[in-house]
Amino acid sequence: MELTLAILLGALFGFALNRAGATNPQSIINMLRLSDTSLMKAILFAIGLSSLVLFSGLALGIIAPAHVSIKTAYIGVFVGGILLGIGFAIAGYCPGTGLAAAATGRKDALIFALGGLAGAFAFTLSYGWLADNTFLFDKIAGGNVGLAATGNDKYDALIPFSGTAIGIVQGIAFIAIAYLIPTHILNKK
């Protein structure tokens, strides 16, 4: 049953990435160099709409709070984000879109994925040293926190107010930003 869901949900996600244009490095680079922000709008809209539905679903008891899974916040999240951002801009791929793009026949995406396997392996080897000798894994604001309460008591809320309201406000804010960002900021034709 779980593997059937993995196949259906994975295929849906891969299909959606392709139809949103996220498997095309041209769309990603154009988004990052601010010459065509359509994909950024799609991503912001997706986050906003997902927030709206998630927090409504949690409030109505349709989505189980146990399915909420908030990742820990620590210094390495920011540093790792920067490293990822550098490669993201050079290649026009991130881990998910790189694999999905390779599946659509892009050879540079396949090479990117091989580089990714090497990078993941290098991290696996260096984690022990980093954990013992650096402050990269020091938590920020307690670590397991969200802005909004989700009903899952493993995670604390930063804003002491109705989680449903905050989730819905965040959702509307992201959707509004998606609409308001100009499509062509730099390199206007």
């Binding site: 540093v79 790792g80 490293l83 990822l84 881990p95 990117f112 580089g115 396997l117 090497a118 990078g119």
Partner: peptide, 16 residues
Amino acid sequence: AFIAGFLVLYGARLAG
């Protein structure tokens, strides 16, 4: 692309 892939996955794993 190879170097970028290396950076992206090293960064992603560091970030969790």
